[in-house]
Nucleic acid binder design. Structure first.
Length: 508
RNA sequence: GGCCCGUUCGUCUAGGGGUUAGGACGCAAGGUUUUCAUCCUUGUAGCAGGGGUUCGAAUCCCCUACGGGCUACCA
């Protein structure tokens, strides 16, 4: 094996938003490249003009950036092989198609859609394998069945044509795949794929091989759905005389839907209530909006971490990885062979872990944005303190609100069940007495409150369960929340007393 | 239909001839906590089936089943 520089590419088609399976493919390419000290390129495969979707390319780039996957070459980052959009490389491909025709590895085909359909119907009626291949190409309208004069006449008349690969007959193609090992296919199973379309654009098969060669790609890491066309690609390299430049291949297992079987799709996200896209997507045609991980409150690093472990594992018990750690630990050899079902519950767990790891101050800045949206303006020091008290109870920053709203707004109602269980006949009296104690308490600190409350309970022989829960009910409105003394200090003496008095009025 | 790929707890996975089949998520129970949650402890649950090979298969081979992918002038 020659020691070429590692160069990999992520080559999406701008036909819509990037699905998390695509993000994972990009991630594995990136991790592999960085681990090997190589380059990661982004190439836009927009050879199908009919499927072009406005905004999709920008979406793809923004998604990669959000994930921290920076490309070394690609749109917006020109390198020695620019341009990186296939539509801008259009003129390149024709010459290779012509080269294949001249070397006898490809041919012109003039069949109309109707003629192709007719052929398929005919073969299917005979229970044969309906494809354009060695068994059928001889009965179709192409430069193999037409003589030279007729072919030239067709071309000169401006008749639409495609260029098809002339698949060799009955040849065993043996290929090596890094994740799957040896894969063998007999060419008699393969058809004469269209390489060059009548609209003047190459198909994926030609374009990807030509570009991978020209861009000096060393490893092709892509989804498993491409495995069936691997022999075609290998044969293409050979036919173009690039045998010594065939990249190594790695076909990644698919991401499956959480319930049942099958490839994860956009519909599943809508149905099961979790995003399948990294970023929110607003479809320009249908106006349909699909949710994204970013907008749902996921941290980019948690999202990347979760995705990295879906199909790859380090062989150790470590589950939490920064991008740098992923780069260091990654290898294609440890990529699994079978598809992975996406687990929304585990995704939340990852975000929880990252939320716990974040500095309270950083989380407070994010939470403060949510507070301002709700019209709540508090000093960041106070917000930070609140975050420190409740962040281990939630998975997302936005959930902090549900756990901390009582800090900002006095309870409007009191949890029915807790009232019934803990609010007794003598509760108002006890609370009134405690209010007096608190009024005179100086300074109003966690330690001070703790001592005062315990002294009271001891002197009056009142149980903690009775007093504390009644107090909590008054301040929070429910039997939940962080340490009561902390809540009291943050609320301040006056607010505490006001809330207790209100509770006595309302509940009794 | 044809071709290709796959199959270890519900899920993500370790394990690649001799293991009490390990970890994580989830779930359950207990503990801690004045409450809820966190946290800690314990538990729950798996080698798709059948044949070989072998002294011995989760592990190697074959078959079957099941699942998936591809089978466009889409990528």
């Amino acid at each position: 094996m020659t020691e070429k520089k590692v160069r990999v590419r992520f080559a999406p088609s701008p036909t819509g938003p990037l699905h998390i399976g695509g993000v994972r493919t990009a991630l594995y390419n990136y991790l592999f490249a960085k681990k090997q000290g190589g380059d990661f390129l982004l190439r836009i495969e927009d050879t199908d003009q009919n499927r072009f979707v406005q905004g999709a390319e920008e979406y793809i780039m923004e998604s990669l950036k959000w994930c921290g996957i920076q490309w070394d070459e690609g749109p917006g980052r020109d390198g020695p092989h620019a341009p990186y959009r296939q539509s801008e490389r259009k003129d390149l491909y024709r010459q290779y198609a012509m080269q294949l025709i001249e070397s006898g590895n490809a041919y012109y085909a003039f069949d109309t859609a109707e003629e192709l359909e007719e052929m398929r119907k005919r073969i299917e009626a005979e229970k044969g394998n309906a494809q354009y291949d060695a068994t059928t190409r001889g009965s179709m309208k192409n430069s193999l069945t037409l003589n030279k004069v007729e072919t030239v006449a067709m071309l000169e008349s401006g008749a639409p044509y495609v260029v098809r690969f002339k698949m060799p007959e009955n040849e065993e193609v043996v290929m090596q795949d890094i994740v799957r090992g040896t894969v063998k296919v007999n060419t008699s199973q393969l058809d004469d794929k269209v390489l060059f379309k009548s609209d003047g654009m190459p198909t994926y098969h030609l374009a990807n091989v030509v570009d991978d060669y020209l861009m000096e790609i060393s490893h092709v890491i892509r989804g498993e759905e491409w495995l069936p066309s691997l022999p075609l690609h290998v044969l293409l390299y050979r036919s173009l005389g690039w045998e010594s430049n065939v990249p190594q291949f790695a076909h990644l297992p698919l991401l499956l839907k959480p319930d049942g079987n099958g490839k994860l799709s956009k519909r599943d996200g809508d149905r099961l209530g979790f995003p399948v896209f990294p970023l929110m997507w607003n479809d320009p045609k249908s106006g349909e909006i699909s949710s994204g991980y970013r907008e749902s409150g996921y941290f980019a690093d948690a999202f990347v971490n979760m995705l990295a472990l879906l199909g790859w594992n380090p062989g150790t018990d470590q589950e939490l990885f920064s991008m740098v750690e992923l780069v260091n630990a990654f290898s294609l050899e440890r990529v699994g062979k079978s598809g992975s079902k996406f687990d929304p519950a585990k995704a939340k767990w990852f975000n929880h872990q990252y939320l716990l790891k974040r500095d309270n101050k950083d989380v407070a800045v994010l939470f403060d944005l949510i507070l301002k949206d709700r019209g709540v303006y508090e000093p960041i020091e106070k917000v930070t303190r609140i975050v420190s008290l409740v962040k281990d109870r939630v998975n997302f920053v936005h959930e902090i609100w549900e756990q901390s709203a009582f800090f900002f707004n006095a309870p409007e109602s009191y949890d029915e069940k807790t009232v019934q269980k803990k609010w007794k006949e003598d509760t108002p009296d006890i609370l009134n007495q405690v209010t007096d104690v608190l009024k005179n308490l100086e300074p109003f600190t966690v330690e001070g409150i703790d001592k005062a409350l315990h002294d009271y309970m001891e002197q009056h022989e009142v149980g903690a369960g009775k007093l504390m829960i009644a107090l909590r009910l008054s301040l929070v409105g429910a039997g939940m929340g962080p340490d009561l003394k902390e809540i009291m200090v943050l609320l301040g003496k006056e607010e505490v007393i006001t809330r207790i008095e209100k509770a006595i009025r309302v509940i009794s």
